[in-house]
């Protein structure tokens, strides 16, 4: 098969994997708690009692939510599927390993983007102005893709225990969330 046709074929199969991930993993309770509520409360812990302008608060909240949602589930999909004995079936399908990983990244990315609508809507409702819409959209998309890919990097250790991968992910996510000046609400 010619390379462009093969890439298109594998992209469509990656989309099927992403749809499956969204249906199975992104509707679970722990995802909502760790992916959405947790960054909101973390943000509130930083912001309450400080005199911060809205146009500093909203980007901080958006960054935190995007970071925590896009990296919330992707690390545990592979160990979860290994444990549930569904990964082996997937590996036997005519889908490249890169397409399987890309499908997982796409699901995380879509979830991160969907949830980031909440702080954007809050910001716009409170009167925060976006100075350049295209640059803002590009930044959100790029950040979403990068964070979703980072989440998948955490699932590299060969294990079928989601807790093992979660521990590694937490060791990176929390320091980044707390100390990255770009994400820090007071940064």
């Amino acid at each position: 098969m010619a390379e462009p046709a093969l890439i298109w074929q594998q992209f469509r199969r990656a989309l099927a994997i992403a749809k499956k991930d969204i249906r199975i993993y992104y509707s679970k309770g722990p995802v909502v708690v760790f992916g959405v509520l947790f960054p909101i409360f973390l943000f509130l812990a930083f912001s309450i009692g400080r005199q911060m302008p809205l146009d500093s608060m909203i980007p901080g909240l958006l960054g935190m939510i995007l970071f925590f949602t896009a990296t919330a589930v992707s690390p545990i999909v592979v160990p979860w599927e290994t444990q549930a004995r569904t990964l082996e079936r997937l590996m036997a399908c005519p889908v490249r390993l890169e397409a399987i990983i890309f499908g997982d990244v796409l699901a995380s990315f879509a979830f991160g983007l969907a949830i980031s609508v909440v702080p954007i809507a809050i910001g716009l409702a409170l009167g925060v102005k976006v100075s350049c819409g295209a640059a803002f959209a590009l930044a959100v998309v790029l950040a979403g893709l990068c964070f979703a890919s980072l989440g998948n990097v955490f699932s590299i250790p060969p294990t079928n225990l989601p807790a093992t991968v979660n521990m590694i992910a937490a060791a990176v996510r929390f320091p980044v969330g707390l100390h990255q000046r770009g994400l820090h609400p007071s940064g």
């Binding site: 099927a16 549930a84 079936r89 997937l90 399908c93 889908v95």
Partner: peptide, 21 residues
């Protein structure tokens, strides 16, 4: 191997069909 427990039988089947094009 197991099918995906959170999907229905039909969804599992259609997922496989998508992965085989």
């Amino acid at each position: 191997a197991n099918p995906y427990n959170d999907l229905s039988g039909w969804e599992n089947l259609m997922l496989m069909a998508s992965l085989y094009g």
